[in-house]
């Protein structure tokens, strides 16, 4: 799973969000490193919808602007859980190696 996909799924983990809401959340989650452009975001949303990982939730209009919310499906939650476990395993392994190379000062 690529990082932007992981971040989008993570952004939706705690509840439905609309397009710009996802962009903002992804920026926060990535510490400002990932800034999704709208075209990129919607291509990713289309793909994740086609893969059955997310689905449209509800629509609302704010200041004349249409906002459609997206939510994780069960399959999306499972995919995010699996990817998180995979990354955690990798991170744990990398940290163990780094500790061996650079032992923490007493």
């Amino acid at each position: 799973m690529r990082e932007p996909t992981f971040l989008i799924l993570t952004a939706l983990a705690d509840g439905p969000r609309h397009g710009y809401g996802i962009v903002q959340e992804v920026r926060v989650l990535s510490g400002g490193r990932t800034s999704l452009l709208t075209g990129t975001l919607y291509t990713a949303l289309d793909r994740l919808t086609a893969e059955g990982l997310i689905e449209p939730d509800r629509e609302e209009e704010v200041d004349g602007r249409v906002r459609r919310y997206y939510r994780l499906r069960t399959e999306g939650l499972a995919a995010l859980t699996d990817e998180t476990a995979r990354l955690r395993q990798l991170t744990t392994a990398a940290e163990a190696r780094l500790r061996a190379v650079r032992p923490e000062p007493a």
């Binding site: 397009g19 710009y20 962009v23 709208t38 975001l41 919607y42 602007r65 249409v66």
Partner: peptide
Amino acid sequence: ARGDELVGALLDA
């Protein structure tokens, strides 16, 4: 289907 939504997200951003 999605034009208004896309424009809304673009204007928000």
